[in-house]
C-alpha cells in the first residue's frame, strides 16, 4: 500500500480508537470508583450511564472560558493542546496486530508507521510531555499552578530515567529499537517478562510505575494533589480546555498500557493460541492486555495513597534508577554471553 495512504488510514483508525477510549475512560473511572466504594456511579445517561462523557463534553463546551487577566496568553491558550497532540502521536509505532507468516516468523501489522527507532520515538515524545505541563503551570499566573508545574517537571524528569533504562532492557535483549521487531522476537522466543529470568518482571513493573509517574496517576499524582494544590496546573483552566487536559491524562494512561503490553507482554501474540487462530485475533489479544493494564491503573488508584514529594524522589533515585541500571547491565551481559 502507498505509505501515505497507509499512514492516513491507520492514523485515522488509531486516532478514533484512542479518542473513544479516552472519552470512555472518564466514565470507566467513575464507574469503577463507584463499584469499589459500593456506590452506583453514573447511571442516568444511557445504559449504565455510558453516555456520560458526551454529556460532560457538551457541558464543558458550553461553559464560560475564563482567561486570567495576568496570564501569559499565547502559552495559556496553547498549553492544553500540546500534551493531547503528543500523546496521540506517541502510539503510532506500536503494532496492534500480527500473524505468523508462512516461514514461521511473526509479521507485525496494524501500526501507523513501522519506525526503525520506535522505542526512541516513544521515549522522545513522552520526554516532551514535561514542557506543556510546565507551560500550563507557568502561564496561568497562579501560585498553585506554578508549584504544581515545578513538581511535575521534577517528577517527570526524574522518572524518565528509570523509564528509559527499563525500556532499554527489551531493546538490548532483542537487539532492535523497532517495536514490531520486539513484538516479533517475543512471539518467536516467548514474552520478555518471562524470557529474562527475574529481570523481565522487575523491568516491566518499573516501566509501568515510571509510566504511571509520567502520566501523574496515583500514587504519583503530587502535581495534581487536589488536597494541597487545589487542582494542580488545572487551577486556572475552565471549559473545554480543562476537559482537554483531562482527556490527555486519560490518553497518557492508555498509551502507557499500550506500550507496556507491546514491550513486555508480546503485543498481539498469545502463547499456543496465536499459532492456531486466524490473524484477526491478534488485535483482540492486544486489546485484552491493554485492558488488563488499563484496569490495573484504576485498581491501583483506589488502593494506594499518594507519595510525599521527597518519598517520590527517594523511590526514584535510591531504588529505581540503580536497579534499572543494574538490570540493563545484566541484560547486556546475558546478550554478550550468549544466554539469550
Amino acid at each position: 500500500m502507498n505509505p501515505w495512504l497507509h499512514g492516513a488510514v491507520y492514523g485515522a483508525g488509531l486516532l478514533g480508537f484512542m479518542m473513544t477510549v479516552g472519552a470512555l475512560a472518564s466514565w470507566y473511572e467513575r464507574k469503577f470508583t463507584a463499584v469499589v466504594q459500593n456506590r452506583l456511579g453514573p447511571n442516568v445517561v444511557g445504559p449504565f450511564g455510558v453516555y456520560q462523557p458526551i454529556a460532560d463534553a457538551i457541558k464543558m463546551l458550553r461553559k464560560e472560558e475564563i482567561i486570567p487577566r495576568d496570564a501569559d496568553r499565547p502559552l495559556y491558550l496553547l498549553a492544553p493542546w500540546i500534551p493531547t497532540f503528543l500523546v496521540l502521536i506517541s502510539a503510532a509505532a506500536v503494532p496492534f496486530g500480527g500473524y505468523y507468516a508462512a516461514d514461521g516468523h511473526w509479521q507485525s501489522t496494524w501500526l501507523v508507521a513501522d519506525l526503525d527507532l520506535g522505542v526512541l520515538w516513544l521515549l522522545a515524545v513522552s520526554g516532551l510531555m514535561v514542557f506543556p505541563i510546565w507551560m500550563a503551570g507557568w502561564s496561568g499566573n497562579n501560585k498553585y499552578a506554578l508549584l504544581a508545574g515545578m513538581r511535575m517537571v521534577a517528577q517527570g524528569i526524574s522518572y524518565e530515567i528509570p523509564m528509559v533504562l527499563t525500556a532499554l532492557v527489551p531493546v538490548i535483549a532483542v537487539g532492535s529499537m523497532s517495536i514490531s521487531d520486539i513484538v516479533a522476537y517475543q512471539a518467536e522466543h516467548g514474552w520478555l517478562i518471562w524470557k529474562l529470568p527475574g529481570i523481565g518482571l522487575v523491568a516491566f513493573v518499573f516501566f509501568y510505575l515510571a509510566s504511571l509517574a509520567e502520566s501523574n496517576r496515583i500514587p504519583f499524582d503530587i502535581p495534581e494533589a487536589e488536597s494541597e494544590l487545589v487542582g494542580g496546573v488545572l487551577v486556572e483552566y475552565t471549559g473545554m480546555r480543562f476537559g482537554i487536559v483531562l482527556l490527555s491524562e486519560y490518553l497518557h494512561t492508555l498509551v502507557a498500557s499500550i506500550v507496556a503490553s507491546a514491550l513486555f507482554l508480546g503485543g498481539g501474540h498469545m502463547p499456543f493460541l496465536s499459532a492456531m487462530l486466524p490473524w484477526w485475533t491478534a488485535p483482540i489479544f492486544m486489546l485484552l492486555k491493554v485492558g488488563a493494564l488499563f484496569f490495573s491503573i484504576y485498581w491501583v488508584r483506589w488502593s494506594w495513597v499518594r507519595y510525599r514529594a521527597d518519598q517520590l524522589m527517594e523511590l526514584c533515585w535510591y531504588w529505581m534508577v540503580p536497579i534499572s541500571l543494574a538490570m540493563v547491565m545484566a541484560t547486556a551481559l546475558m546478550v554478550t554471553g550468549g544466554w539469550l
Binding site: 469503577f32 463499584v35 469499589v36 466504594q37 459500593n38 456506590r39 452506583l40 447511571n43 442516568v44 485498581w299 491501583v300 483506589w302 488502593s303 494506594w304
Partner: peptide, 22 residues
C-alpha cells in the same frame, strides 16, 4: 501493605451497593 490494599480493593468491589439510585 501495598499488596494487601490491592486485595482489599478487589474484595470491596464485590460488596453490594449501599446507595440508592437518583
Amino acid at each position: 501493605g501495598s499488596i494487601d490494599s490491592l486485595i482489599a480493593t478487589i474484595k470491596n468491589s464485590f460488596r453490594p451497593v449501599v446507595t440508592e439510585s437518583v
